[in-house]
Design a binder for these strands. Structure first.
Length: 675
DNA sequence: AGATTTACTATTTTT
DNA sequence: TAGTAAATCT
């Protein structure tokens, strides 16, 4: 029986007046006067996120139901924060708003409509490392052993595949331009890419690219999409400079009949072309919607004039960009400093001591950050931070869910949710002692083609099924344990049939059971197994928010809690909030009072791969720009003058060209760092 | 033959 | 650190 509902609506406040006070003229117009399409070109630190937040709040104030708003941002965390703040600003409710990354939004929609595209609704998502595993599996079957070295690595296959999809390019073209060494193998490579594609379909699996592609296909071909289009009246997209062709098309498709579509971006901060992003989509947007209103937010609220001057001087060397002149009304401050250090150790010591000095001057650690081009550049610094007893978090490298033990655990949930999934089965089987990759494939082949492989596995008489196949006795025994495990956790004990998800134990309990089961394996494999088991328990805590495993599995992939960052909020409230170490890419959208940019040498920033490629060098310069504009008050560039190298002996570290080319502009001071 | 251990090498960036 | 190749068990 349907319940009666009564919706309470909070009284509208005099929003425009209040917003008027809290925004500058450009922001105010962009927030309140938008109808139809709008392109907001916003410089670094210009409060574009603030403008978007206020726009959401404004719409809600105007009586737009929150589920009629779609807000797409670069990270899900950014979306959550924005929605939360919009809620506070407007005093309205934001429930039902479609908000998050493209991937997150796609996942939400596809969960509902997967069947219209020929998937089962319990499809699972694979991340990059699963993708690599799947490629390896296929390559193992398709490529003769002695030919292996001639072929691209799994990672190359993954990149080629991704480029083909995200830039809508032909495989021939990609190989000719980016992988000329494999030109002779084009046809063989295509066969493997096709096999990968087919295998995903057959096993009810989507990778990150599929989420986007299928979302677009859904919008273009399915009648049900009209319902969604009808509901979504206002579309807001942040970081539009980093969308790829498919994401841009998604925006166009979903906003076809919308009342407003606002996209915000800064071409100077486009740093994701390696995954198909292209800031010229901002231009295409103007073509696509001829009546587009353009707003420019050029006042920077973040940095001192000195820091801004350096950033402006640097980005001026990029030819390919929109014209923007950033200005600030902040009072004058310290000039940015370039600090050559004898070697990496000295560089690390300098940074640590400087950090402590700032802390003494009442700039807490969490208001300071150290940024770098590549995750491994931080290693020397980390050692020093430990010596100096400076607490820090790392936002780089391996994601929390990408760690082997986390993936081990998730594999069990995956198989229960989507039993036809082969990569996760392989992972589960081969973690048992006595079973390696080869044996896992043999075992897998005995049950994977059954309608329900999980039921088939539990019912399997291992002794007869594996007779004559070279599988160790130890492995066979171990697998009996696995059968028992699945029988007890996921199956009806009477007939061994797989229970429907609503009859499983609660998710945290399930995770605890799996943890218990796999801990002995972790103990065999890892020295630090205790910590890893601890991570798994934390994962159990995290899972209390979720009711079904399927949502949990997809969420954990689309919400990226990073390794090192606690996934349980509030667990370290008592301790000092730590210093942030981050790749420049991960620092996007963030700000600190003090920023150090590490290892600013030729070859690292810009990275040597970009040498000789003008477009790539411009992107590297944008990275330099992003790093510089994260700083509010103090900015340091450090680099080691001697770089040990096992290839050619020690090399002299030449300072980054991005520093050299602005030397004449008098925008930084050079410091002497001495022992 | 295949599983497991050990030694070695080269590191971009990520939803 | 993680992926791979070669060496060594079973």
């Amino acid at each position: 029986m349907a319940k009666k509902t009564f919706k309470v609506k909070l009284p509208a406040k005099a929003a425009p007046e209040r917003f008027r006070q809290e925004l500058n003229d450009e922001q105010y117009l962009a927030v309140t006067h938008q109808k139809g399409p709008a392109l907001i070109i916003a410089g670094a630190g210009s409060g574009k996120t603030r403008a978007l937040t206020y726009r959401v709040a404004y719409l809600i104030d105007q009586g737009v139901p929150s589920n009629a708003i779609m807000l797409v941002t670069f990270t899900k965390k950014a979306a959550d924060e924005m929605v939360h703040r919009a809620e506070r600003v407007s005093g309205g409710h934001t429930q039902g708003m479609l908000a998050g990354t493209f991937h997150h939004v796609a996942n939400i929609v596809l969960r509902k409509y997967a069947e219209t595209l020929g998937y089962h609704s319990n499809f699972t998502i694979i991340d990059r490392s699963d993708q690599l595993d799947l490629f390896k599996l296929i390559m193992g079957q398709a490529i003769p052993k002695d030919q292996k070295t001639r072929y691209p690595k799994a990672a190359d296959f993954s990149d080629i595949y991704s480029l083909a999809i995200n830039q809508e390019r032909q495989v021939d073209d990609i190989i000719a331009k980016e992988y000329p060494q494999y030109t002779e193998l084009v046809n063989e490579i295509k066969v493997i890419l096709q096999a990968y594609h087919d295998r995903k379909r057959a096993t009810n699996v989507m990778d990150f690219d599929d989420l986007l592609v299928n979302f677009l296909v859904f919008l273009r071909t399915q009648p049900a999409a009209d319902k969604l289009r009808h509901r979504i009246r206002h579309v807001l997209v942040d970081e539009f400079q980093d969308v790829n062709a498919i994401q841009a098309d998604i925006v166009y498709e979903i906003s076809r009949n919308a009342e407003s579509v606002s996209v915000v971006g800064d071409d100077a901060q486009a740093i994701y072309s390696f995954r198909g992003a292209d800031f010229t989509h901002m231009l295409h947007f103007l073509d696509k919607y001829p009546g587009t209103r353009e707003y420019k937010l050029e006042e920077n609220y973040r940095s001192t004039p000195e820091i801004l001057a350096l950033a402006n001087a640097s980005i001026a060397h990029n030819i390919n960009q929109f014209q923007k002149i950033l200005y600030t009304n902040r009072p004058t401050g310290e000039k940015p400093a370039v600090c050559p250090c004898a070697d990496k150790e000295l560089e690390a010591h300098f940074i640590c001591q400087k950090i402590l000095q700032f802390r003494d001057e009442d700039i807490p650690l969490y208001e300071q950050a150290v940024l770098f081009r590549a995750a491994y550049h931080r290693i020397a610094l980390e050692q020093a931070l430990v010596e100096y007893n400076i607490p820090y978090v790392v936002r780089a490298g391996v994601r929390f869910f990408e760690q082997a033990h986390i993936k081990d655990l998730l594999a069990y949930l995956c198989v229960m949710v989507n039993p036809v999934e082969q990569v996760q089965w392989t992972r589960i089987l081969s973690m048992h002692p006595g079973i390696g990759d080869a044996a896992a494939q043999k075992v897998l082949s005995t049950f994977i083609s059954e309608p329900n492989p999980l039921e088939a596995f539990v019912a399997l008489d291992l002794a007869t099924a594996l007779q004559g196949k070279r599988v160790r006795a130890q492995g066979k025994t171990a697998l009996q344990g696995l059968q028992q495990f699945f029988l007890q956790t996921a199956c009806n004990p009477q007939d061994g049939s797989l229970l429907p998800p609503d009859q499983w134990s609660s998710l945290p309990e399930l995770i605890e059971l799996i943890t218990k089961y796999i801990t002995p394996f972790l103990e065999l494999r890892y020295k630090d197994w205790k910590e890893r088991a601890g991570d798994l328990r934390e994962l159990g805590n995290f899972a209390t928010k979720y009711h079904d495993a399927s949502a949990f599995l997809s969420d954990i992939l689309t919400t990226i809690p990073l390794k090192g960052e606690s996934i349980v909020d509030g667990s370290e409230v008592e301790e000092e909030r730590p210093l942030v170490l981050s790749t420049i890419h991960q620092a996007k959208g963030l700000e600190w009072r003090v920023v150090f940019v590490l290892n600013c040498v030729e070859g690292a920033l810009p990275i040597s791969r970009a040498f000789g490629d003008p477009a790539a060098l411009e992107e590297e310069r944008r990275l330099f720009y992003v790093a510089s504009t994260r700083a509010k008050d103090y900015l340091f560039f450090t680099y080691p003058e001697f770089v040990p190298s096992y290839m050619v002996g020690d090399m002299i570290g030449r300072p980054s060209r991005f520093i050299e080319e602005i030397r004449g502009d008098n925008v930084f001071e050079e410091w002497d760092i001495e022992l």
